[in-house]
Simulated scan of single mutants.
Amino acid sequence: MGFDEGIMRAVSAGRADAVTQVIQGIGNAGMRIEVLEVVALAAVLAVVATRSWRVGGIAAASLLSGDLVAHWLKQVVRRPRPAGDLTLWPEIHSWAMPSTHAAATSALAMAVFLAVQWRSGRMRRAAGTALATAVVLVGGCMVYLGAHWPTDVLAGWLLGAGIGAAVAWTAGKLRPNRISANDLSSDARDTPGV
């Protein structure tokens, strides 16, 4: 028995009915287009309300890139999903590796974490903890439901984190340096060419 199968057998044996119902309910809601539309609308409204155009663009580009690259890699890797008594979602017949949910959420979380200019180190740590917790919960639910092998989720997390970091880094490089006259010292203002 391999690493993935051993973990999946332990998860399958340890499932509790109440927990399973809650996680399945959340999973089913997350697959509904209406729920995704409401979440997208809330995100757009948050960006508009805070005028965080740059962060919103970076977040959207990372989420879409993570999703697209994960879907493409599934066609390359072609790994079957858990089956039989290991899964609670036997109706999913697409490929498993990497987890698209893990890649997209990880890309989004990493991009937001890096793109936002946090007001303090404490806020940055709190946001990082909240974002990481959300990513781990999504991936954990995929394993709990038997929709993915643990290494599918791990691969999705690594892929997404890389994509989110790359998008945030690229956006940072493309952003023009904005230095106001107040930011310059008197010596710098007196220096020719500055």
Rank of each mutant, 00 (worst) to 15 (best):
G2D: 15
G2Q: 07
D4R: 08
D4Y: 02
G6M: 11
G6E: 12
M8E: 14
A10F: 06
V11P: 05
V11D: 06
V11F: 08
S12K: 04
A13S: 12
A13C: 03
A16T: 03
A18Q: 04
V19P: 00
T20D: 12
T20M: 04
Q24F: 00
G25K: 02
G25H: 02
G25I: 02
I26W: 01
G27I: 01
G30P: 01
R32P: 00
I33R: 06
E34L: 01
E34W: 00
E34I: 03
V35Q: 03
V35C: 01
L36V: 06
L36E: 15
A40T: 10
A42C: 14
A43C: 14
A43P: 00
L45C: 12
A46C: 11
V47K: 00
S52L: 01
S52A: 15
R54L: 12
R54G: 02
V55P: 00
G57T: 08
G57A: 09
G57D: 09
I58D: 03
A59S: 14
A59L: 10
A60N: 03
S62L: 08
S62C: 06
L63T: 09
L63H: 03
L64Y: 01
L64E: 08
D67P: 01
D67V: 00
L68K: 05
L68E: 05
V69S: 02
V69F: 11
Q75I: 02
V77A: 14
P80H: 11
A83T: 12
G84F: 09
L86C: 05
L88K: 04
P90S: 08
E91K: 14
I92D: 15
H93P: 07
H93W: 09
S94E: 15
W95L: 07
P98H: 09
A102K: 00
A107Y: 04
L108M: 11
A109D: 07
A111K: 00
V112E: 05
F113A: 13
F113Q: 12
A115W: 02
V116K: 06
R124P: 01
R124Q: 15
R125I: 10
R125S: 08
G128Q: 07
L131T: 06
A134E: 12
A134P: 02
V136D: 09
V136I: 15
L137H: 05
L137M: 14
G139R: 01
G140P: 02
M142T: 13
V143L: 11
V143P: 06
G146A: 06
A147C: 11
H148R: 06
P150D: 13
T151P: 11
D152F: 05
D152L: 06
V153G: 07
G156C: 08
G156E: 10
W157D: 07
L158Q: 05
L158C: 12
G160S: 11
A161D: 08
I163A: 05
G164P: 01
A165T: 10
A165K: 06
A166G: 10
A166E: 09
V167A: 03
A168R: 00
W169D: 08
T170A: 15
T170F: 09
G172D: 14
G172W: 04
K173G: 04
K173H: 07
K173E: 11
L174G: 04
P176E: 13
P176S: 06
P176F: 08
N177W: 04
A181C: 03
N182S: 12
D183M: 09
D183S: 10
L184V: 06
S185E: 08
D187A: 15
A188Y: 03
A188M: 13
R189H: 13
T191W: 14
V194C: 12
V194Y: 14
V194W: 13
